[in-house]
Amino acid sequence: MGKTNPGRFFEDYKLGDVIRHAVPRTVAEGERALYHALYPARHALYSSDEFAAACGLDGSPLDDLIAFHVVFGKTVPDVSLNAVANLGYAEGRWLKPVYPGDTLRSESEVIGVKQNSNGKSGVVYVRTRGLNQAGEVVLEYVRWVMVRKGDLDAPAPETVLPDLASVVAPEDLVIPEGLSFEDYDFDLAGEPHRWGDYEIGEKIDHVDGVTIEEAEHMIATRLWQNTAKVHFDATFRADGRRLIYGGHVISMARALSFNGLANAQLIVALNAGAHANPCFSGDTVKAWSEVLDKAETGAPGVGAIRLRLVAVKQGAPEFGYKGEDGKYLPEVLLDLDYWALMPI
Rank of each mutant, 00 (worst) to 15 (best):
R25Y: 08
V302K: 01
M146L: 12
P192N: 07
E31S: 04
L15H: 08
L309G: 02
N277R: 13
V76A: 10
N263Y: 01
Y99T: 05
S47D: 12
A316L: 08
G326T: 09
R20M: 10
C279V: 15
N277A: 11
H275R: 08
Y39A: 10
P170V: 11
V332M: 10
A316V: 07
D64F: 05
G260K: 03
I305R: 00
V230W: 01
Y184D: 00
D239V: 05
A274H: 15
E91A: 08
P330T: 12
I212P: 06
A253R: 03
A156C: 05
L341K: 00
D197N: 12
V160D: 04
A54W: 01
N277Y: 03
L243R: 04
K149P: 00
V145C: 13
S121Y: 00
A264W: 06
F51S: 05
R148C: 04
E107V: 04
R32P: 02
G260P: 03
T159P: 11
I344L: 13
V147S: 06
S121K: 05
A299I: 07
K313W: 01
E29Y: 12
P317K: 10
L62E: 02
I344V: 14
V168H: 08
D187C: 02
I305V: 14
R241H: 09
L45F: 00
K294I: 05
D172K: 15
K203A: 13
D17A: 14
D337G: 05
S166K: 14
N5R: 12
E109Q: 15
R129M: 00
A28N: 15
D335V: 10
V70P: 00
T235M: 09
D64V: 12
V124M: 02
D58V: 11
F72Y: 15
